[in-house]
């Protein structure tokens, strides 16, 4: 039990750029450890000789022509949800402090 340490969760949170409260760090340390314990049972499954299943539709290489198509979406509608913009561009905060 409790394979993960608090630092592991904090490190994961940093990697995925997610801000967690102290309570959440404690809660998720416990919960993620419980899930890791639970999925460990798969280590005992004998899968020798089994082909991996990657998908179930049987579809392969679904492609389309590389051409611009008008779906009737307006640039204005597509931009209407932007938190911040400048002209036709998405405006974000500076990368360096």
């Amino acid at each position: 039990m409790s394979k993960l340490k608090k630092e592991d969760v904090l490190n994961l949170a940093e990697l995925v750029r997610l801000d967690l409260t102290d309570d959440e760090v404690n809660e998720f340390t416990e919960e993620l450890s419980a899930i890791l314990d639970y999925v460990e049972q798969l280590g005992d499954v004998d899968v020798s000789g089994l082909e991996p299943t990657n998908q179930v539709t049987g579809l392969t290489n679904v492609t389309r022509k590389d051409e611009i198509k008008d779906y009737g979406y307006s640039l204005e509608d597509l931009q209407s949800n932007l938190p911040d913009s400048k002209g036709n561009l998405i405006k974000v905060k500076r990368m360096l402090n």
Partner: peptide
């Protein structure tokens, strides 16, 4: 950055990601 909740107080892009999600 593109839609949904966005933390307006973040100073950097990285903080904006973390805070918006957090």
């Amino acid at each position: 950055q593109r839609y949904g909740y966005s933390d307006k107080n973040a100073k950097t892009l990285n903080d904006s990601y973390k805070n918006s999600r957090g």
